[in-house]
Amino acid sequence: MRKLYTKKLSKKDQFKDLKPQKETVQFLLNYSKALRVVENNGIKFGTILN
C-alpha cells in the first residue's frame, strides 16, 4: 500500500491565516450603518433602518 506523507501543521500554522469571511465583516458594517439608537424618557432603543 502506498504510504501517505502529510505535513503536520504546528499549532501556530493552524491558526495563521484564520479570518472571518468577507461577507460576515460586510454584514457587520451594514448592520452598524443601519442601526440607530434613539433615546426616549431615558431609555435607549435600537432601530434598524433599511
Binding site: 460576515t24 457587520l28 448592520y31 442601526l35 439608537v37 435607549k44 435600537g46
Partner: peptide
C-alpha cells in the same frame, strides 16, 4: 460556529458602542 460567534461578538460591540 466561529463565524457565528465572531458575528455575535461584534453585534454586541456595535450595540454597546452605539448606546454610548
Amino acid at each position: 460556529v466561529a463565524e457565528d460567534i465572531f458575528q455575535d461578538t461584534f453585534i454586541k460591540v456595535i450595540n454597546t458602542l452605539k448606546r454610548g
